[in-house]
Structure formats: C-alpha cells, structure tokens
C-alpha cells in the first residue's frame, strides 16, 4: 500500500532532464516563433513589428497579388515533378548500382557528388549551362546544328522546368543513396528464393522489394517534400525569379516582402499560408501513419 506504483512522471528521470533543453528550444523557438508570426500577420507591421491589428487585410492583399498565385503554381509544378522524378530516377539508379557492378564506389561517388554542392553553386552552374549565349545551345549550334534552340531560362513558360533540372541534378544522388541503403537491407535469401521461383527481376523489384522498402520510401518522401517547400536559394541563384515573375516561389515572396519591401505583415501572412499548406499535407499523412499503430 505504502509503495504504490511510482509516479509515471519520475520514471527515467535522467533521460527526461537531458531532454529539457531540447524541449524548451522546441517550445520557445519553433512553437513560440510560429505563434508570434501568425499573430503579427494580422497587423500592419512595416519595417519593424508593430501591434496594430488590421484583421485579414494582409491575407486579402496576398491572395489578390498575381505574384503570389504564380509562386504557388510554380511550387506545385516544381513539387509534383521533383517528387515523382527524383523518386523514379533515384530508384532506377539505385537498382542499377545494386546489380553488383564493377567500380560501384566510383559511380556512387560521382552520382552523389552534386549533393555536396550548395543550391547557390548548383543554380549558378545551371544558369551558365542553360544560358543561350555560351551554354548548351551555343555548343550544339557550334557543332553544326544551326537551328537548334534550347533556352528555358529566358522563356517564361519553361523556366520552372529549367530550375527543376538543376534541382533534380542536385538531389537525385541523395535519393539514390537512400534507396541503395534500403536495398542492401533486404535479405539476400529473398532474391535467391525469387530466382528459384523464376520470377523476373523487374517483377521482384515491384512486387517484393518496393513493399519491403516502405520505411525507406517514407523517409525519402519527407526529405524530398521538405526540400520542395523551402526551395529558395536555387531560384535566387539561377533565375532571380525571372523572367518577369515567372519563376517566383513562395519562400522568395516571403523574403522579398519581409525585408526588401519593408512590409513584415505581408511576409508573415505569406509564411503563415505556407505553414498552412504544409499542415494540410502533413496532418492526414501523420494520421494515417501513426493513427493506425495506436489502433493495432
């Protein structure tokens, strides 16, 4: 009776004490900062934050701005393409490397190498490669094909795909390595069994290996998705948002209005909308992912 079950709160005390700084950081910096941003998005703050509330004015202005809608469209195109393509390219490269080829290490390093470069460097390199005056176009024309035209960065319809190429070049290597790690984690006996049964290799990959790699795919998806939402530096370095406003992205809108436009309220409203968009994607996913475990 006197020694009832120890209070749950005091179990594992050392671990909990050790986690306190991180918990505080998370609460103050992430949650606190987020709440502060949302509150001030309802104010008319200009260069400095000022608590002069104006209701939904900033949001009304945001959604009537064509630059914001163009930014969202671009993010959607970039996001969808980069999600699908980097998964496909990463998986294909990984399964090719998985064939016990010679010089695997060398190939792996070469394919992963772009990931070691920052987005700024990537953006500049691809700005030069795609520049019509001295990039791909002039090389092909110099080789004799005069009518060749490939100028995505100065074409407002194509520019976001020019950015996409650079993004894929930079990011696919990492996806490949993650996938390869997942494939190496699969028991070799499964391969032997499928070979004994005479199942073709592509079928083994699609029907057995991919389902077994589910955790790897989820990690990869989270990494790709977070990269998509915050895409900023690549656009700044490669196109500066141009031509015109045709390669603008939401993160750049936030930065430009918060700092260059000296209109914090507008930048906060835009970043709150970005947060909302992320939540719309994350909450159903988290519900599916973690909700089912509680029931099971």
């Amino acid at each position: 009776m006197q020694n009832a079950r120890p209070n749950q709160l005091f179990r594992n005390m050392t671990a909990k004490i050790a986690a306190i700084p991180m918990i505080l950081t998370a609460l103050c910096v992430f949650v606190g900062g987020t709440v502060w941003t949302i509150v001030y998005s309802f104010t008319s703050s200009k260069l400095l934050p000022r608590a002069k509330f104006v209701g939904f004015d900033q949001y009304e202005r945001l959604w009537s701005t064509s630059r914001w809608t163009v930014s969202l469209e671009n993010l959607f195109i970039y996001g969808l393409c980069s999600l699908v393509l980097s998964l496909i390219i990463g998986f294909l490269l990984a399964s090719l490397l998985d064939q016990k080829i010679r010089f695997e290490n060398t190939f792996r390093s070469i394919l992963l190498y772009p990931f070691a470069l920052s987005f700024i460097v990537t953006g500049l390199v691809w700005q030069w490669i795609l520049n019509p005056e001295f990039g791909v176009q002039s090389v092909v024309r110099g080789a004799g094909w005069i009518g060749f035209s490939f100028n995505p960065l100065y074409d407002s319809e194509l520019v976001i795909y020019g950015v996409l190429i650079a993004g894929l070049w930079q990011g696919s290597g990492l996806i490949m390595v993650l996938m390869l790690a997942g494939m190496r984690g699969i028991d070799q006996d499964i391969w032997k069994a499928s070979r004994v049964d005479g199942i073709p290799m592509w079928k083994t990959y699609i029907l057995i290996i991919i389902p077994m790699m589910r955790p790897v795919f989820i990690t990869t998806l989270v990494i790709i998705a977070s990269g998509i939402v915050k895409v900023y530096d690549l656009v700044v370095a490669q196109t500066g948002g141009g031509p015109g406003i045709s390669s603008e992205v939401p993160a750049k809108y936030v930065y430009d209005y918060m700092f260059q436009g000296q209109n914090l309220g507008q930048g906060f409203a835009a970043s709150t909308m970005m947060l909302l968009a992320v939540l719309i994607v994350v909450i159903p996913w988290a519900y599916l992912e973690f909700g089912s475990k509680n029931r099971g």
């Binding site: 200009k46 260069l47 701005t65 064509s66 630059r67 407002s156 141009g242 031509p243 015109g244 406003i245 045709s246 430009d256 209005y257 260059q260 436009g261 000296q262 209109n263 507008q266």
Partner: peptide
C-alpha cells in the same frame, strides 16, 4: 513612395516587361 509600394511597382513592371 514607401518601399512597400515601390516593391509592388517592381513586381508589376518586371512582369509587364517580360510578358
């Protein structure tokens, strides 16, 4: 003009000149 207004004008004209 405030910088905010100038920034909006920048957005308008860079779009206009390119589209």
């Amino acid at each position: 003009n405030t910088e905010d207004t100038n920034n909006q004008l920048n957005d308008l004209f860079v779009e206009f000149f390119n589209d």
